[in-house]
Each structure stands twice: as structure tokens, then as C-alpha cells.
Design a protein around this nucleic acid. Sequence first.
DNA 1: GTGAAAGCGCTAACAT
DNA 2: ATGTTAGCGCTTTCAC
Lengths: 335, 335
Amino acid sequence: VANISDVARLAGVSPMTVSRVINHSGHVKEETRLRVLRAMKELNYVPNDLARSLVRRRTDTLALIVPDITNPFFTTVARGTEDTARKNDFRVVLCNSDEDPAKELEYIRMCVSIRVDGVIIAAAGDGSRKNLELLDSFEIPYVLVDRKVDGVQADVVTGDSRMGAFQLVKHLIDLGHRDIAMITGFLTTSTARERRDGYRRALEEHGIPFREAWVKETSYMRNMDFTLVEQLLDCTPRPTAIFAANNFLAVQVIRGLRHRGLRVPEDMAVVCFDDVDPYSLVEPFLTVASQPAYNFGTIATQLLIERIEHGEGPAPSPRSIVLQPEVIIRKSSGH
Amino acid sequence: VANISDVARLAGVSPMTVSRVINHSGHVKEETRLRVLRAMKELNYVPNDLARSLVRRRTDTLALIVPDITNPFFTTVARGTEDTARKNDFRVVLCNSDEDPAKELEYIRMCVSIRVDGVIIAAAGDGSRKNLELLDSFEIPYVLVDRKVDGVQADVVTGDSRMGAFQLVKHLIDLGHRDIAMITGFLTTSTARERRDGYRRALEEHGIPFREAWVKETSYMRNMDFTLVEQLLDCTPRPTAIFAANNFLAVQVIRGLRHRGLRVPEDMAVVCFDDVDPYSLVEPFLTVASQPAYNFGTIATQLLIERIEHGEGPAPSPRSIVLQPEVIIRKSSGH
DNA sequence: GTGAAAGCGCTAACAT
DNA sequence: ATGTTAGCGCTTTCAC
């Protein structure tokens, strides 16, 4: 494999001149430039970015850490991130934390060891704070996406979870429901907390008491515990509607209901956060608070790159972008 | 940021000894080892993998190139790849080619310049051959996943597209359909060709003539041309069933039909390849040939790593793993 | 069991 | 407009 010296030798110049040609840094006579280009082609030369990054102290690489790339919400965030990164000549390394702060930490260590220029992260939970401190100590900029982290000051792009939850629950109330249960992610994640708060506020504004027992907390992931649904069904009185705090939870809820022979929405209304299936939906069924996932990715990436590219002078203070969800009413709420 | 010399100095040893500790290469007295470990902790030291990779000529990094990560099929392949890579201490860089050989080439150049140890690729089409030759010339091993590439000898993990298509179309024929149209990806991709062949064989085995005009060719991507469906509807006789060669095409077909006020399956039966929505399906609707996408990823990655890890001696000759699709009959075919 | 020297492939900084 | 020097942070090789 040819290196920069091989090219230099063949072109009859110094490695430095080749470097100048590669990097379009100018100050090279057109004639020499062409000679170098010819040599590069002849040797099938591809610059070694490891060496380049090592000396430049910059990798042109971002990391995106999400809980689970098979969740269509995060998939779409990832696409937004990648497209934006690419436009700005950055690469993206993708990591799945599985909602696990320990696994997340491993990936953050990796980010440091490969010297990424910045990180976009949908944090596993408040336990991520320590993980992020590692980035701080290496002065690697990062932006939080989808979820805030308690005690962390950083750029953040989130949806208005409180508002979305409020509207969803209000919709159920308007339909006449008063016994509304909720299944949410672990309350160590900001979205779980905010969605619960929105739920609570909607109830209270309509004079319906908030019952702790009707809020079930579990993992946001696909493998959520089936029995939680059963527990809700065994409550007295039995709820007539369930608010699921994300798409996977909603799917599990519906499966649980089916399992007990209950129909949606006839026997139980169901609403949730996040589109279940943003691209393939043939027959959208779920009433949802849909979030602009792609924009989560593009905006977060823009903020991050801005910070990376920012030269001397005072760095911009942490910015918070809040995007509004759109409530889409469909069959599952029995409107 | 501390480097290996800083640690060495603090521990009162040479950088070489620190290196030995980092890499668990043994031959270090337990006492010194602990001293080094303490120094590392104190300096918050994280080894620089760029430097390490540069000298070791190995990055422990794989690349996965897929047409579109928002397609749930590829998302699942990606998850299989990542999980397997991780288990074997490899990282994964993810790339979207958008079914475009030119964009694919850019990413392959990147693979070379960052010196990935291997590549897993769902190639854009037969035009990918030249792109893959670049990898060959740098002796970077790769394995093809989902799609073969004309004229390329390499490990390959595919589904039995011909068989799946055959069964899907046979199912339609068994239901009494004789006027069956097909919408497939560009015939420069092996899956499009094989699915068309399976379709054709099913027809011919049942004495139904194969009509070129009833096979519409377009991009596998989400933004497929709406008007193709309209063209099919304007044929005489009008087909009574449509076989879509992947999930996104099926969705577009159904949208097109809706647009013209046609119901599925009452007015038109629809079947397709690949699950539309492997995780979130609340009410599966489409009759599909479902492929074990996760295994595509895991197997491809295993083959690749085997090849990377393979020391001296003759490299294994190209292997071909063919996984069987499972036909799942649901409402959209009007069984 | 430990260290010194050399160098991976490139570019920043300073000549000329 | 081009070249020289030095060094990024690590590991390989060979010494002791």
C-alpha cells in the first residue's frame, strides 16, 4: 500500500507538497499539482486518515449513542444525524446503549479512545451524568438529544413531552374516560418523568385524582414486561384507557390486551408517544403524539458541529431546542 | 490530556511497560502493574487508539454499508452486525449508500482511508463491483449481505429470494389469481432479479404466461414512483394481484391503490418480500416472505471476522450462506 | 521483567 | 512555491 512518500518520490516532490495537494491548501503550482495527482492515481493512493487524525488532533468523526437503533424513532434520528454530518464532512459512528448506563460508559470510553470530535447522545438515564463527565474531562463536546440528564449542562434537543402527554390524556378525558392508567419508561429518564407530569396535570386539571398505583414504570425497550399490563387489568376499578409513554410500550400493551382477549379500542383505549412506524404504515391505527425525529437528529448535529467548529473566544452557552409533538388521533383511542 | 509517557513517568517506568499493562501482554511484575494502574487512574488516562491503530496496522473496526438504515430490514441486519462485532471486540461504522453506487464509492474510500479491518455490504447493485475492487486492492476483506454482485467472488449471506417469490406467487395462484403483476427493485440488484425469476417460474409452472409489461422496475427505496402503480391499474386486463419485491414497495403500492379508491385485499391482493415492521406490528396485515434479518447480520459478521482473524495459510474460499424466508399469510392476500 | 530505539504516515511550523 | 525538521502517541524489535 502506497504512502505519501511513495507518491512524493514518484512525482519528484517532497511529501509536504503532496500533503498540500491532498488538502487543497493551495500554494502549489498547477503543473506540480497535476504531476502529484498523476502519481496518486498511478499508485492507487488513499491517504491514511489515522496518521492524519493523529497529527491534526481531529478525526472528523462524530458518535451517536442511542438506546436501540431498531426503534424507528432512533433510526430516524440517526438518519437525520448522518445526513447532516455528511453534509459537513463528518463521519458518524453509531452505538446502542440498550438503555444501560454501563454499556453506555463503554461506548463513551471508546469515543474518547478513538478521539471523536463530538458526541450526540440519547442518554440512558440520569446515571449517564458520570459518563458524560468523562467527555467533559477530555473536552469533547456533546449534545443531548431526546432526553435531558439531571445535573448536566449542555446543548439539548428535546420534544415537549409534558405538552404531548397532556394533550394525549386530555383527548382521552374529552372522550369520557376518567380511569386512565399509564405505562412509562424508568423515571430516571427525563421523558418518562415529563410524560408522567403531563399525564398528571391533565388529570388534575379535570378534577381526576392522580393515583400512583396506576403509573407503571418499566424499560422503554422492546422486551418490556408483559405482566405490567395484567396488573393494570386487575385493578379495581379497571382502567378504561392506557397511555403508553413510547411506541414499543404501546405495542406491548396491545399485545397484553390481546392476550387477555380485550379489544382496542372497544374494551380499552390506547394512546402513546412516538410514531410506531413512521415509514411503513399501511393502516395507521394508534393515536399518538408524533415527534419530528429526523429534525431531532439534524438540529442536534448542527448544534454539535457549530460547537466543534467554534474557534477561540467564549463558547456559546448551552442551548435548549424544544420541538413540539403533533397529536394524531386515530382508531386506537376510539374517538 | 495525558499520554502514555505521562503515565510512565508518574509510575516511574518506561512507556513500554505501560503499554504491556494496557495490552495485558504479561511479563510485568504484579507490583509494577498495580503502580501503573494507579498512575493511569490518577491521570484519567485513556489510550489513544489512533496511534495504536497506526502502528499495529489494525483498527478493530468494521464498516457496514446498507442502502438505507431506516428500512427495518437493514436496521435489524445492523443490530445483528453490531451485537456480533461487539462480542468480538470490534466497532462498527455505519453507512447509508441510498442505493447509489457513487455514494457507496465515497464510503468505500472512507473505509480505506480509516483502514477498517473489514466491510459488510448490502451492495447498491452490480455497479458496486468496481467499488469492491478498491477494497480488493487494499486487501480489505468484505462479505456481501442480502445481495450478490455480478462478477464478485466473496463470502455472501443471502435469502432464498427465488424460493420466497415462488411461494408468494404460488399462494396467489392457489387463491385463483391469474393476472398477477410485480413491482421490483432495479434489476441491477440480485434480489430484484431472483425475485422476478421466482415470480416467473411460479407463473410458468401453472401455465400462466409471463408478461414483461407486468413487471415494473423501480428503486427499492421509500420514495418509489407512485405512478407505476397507476400504470398497472391501467393495463387491460387489470391485474387482480400485485407482488411487491420489498416492504417499502408494498407500502407504496397500497398507498397508490388507496389513492385510486381501491381496497386491499377486496379489490387487489398484495404480497411482498420482507416484513414491513418486525417489531411494532400491532395488527400485521401484509402477506409476506419474511427473512431472518438479524441472522443476516450475525452470520455475515462472523464470516468476516473469521477472515480477518485468519492468520497465515490459505484463506478460506468464498462461502455462500443462503437463509430461507418464511411465508406468512395474512389479510392482504385475501386468503 | 524492563527499557531504548525506531518508526507507523502524516502535517504544523518554520525555513528557503 | 517548495522543502526540512520535528513530532502526534503508540507498539515492535531487540537488548539487557
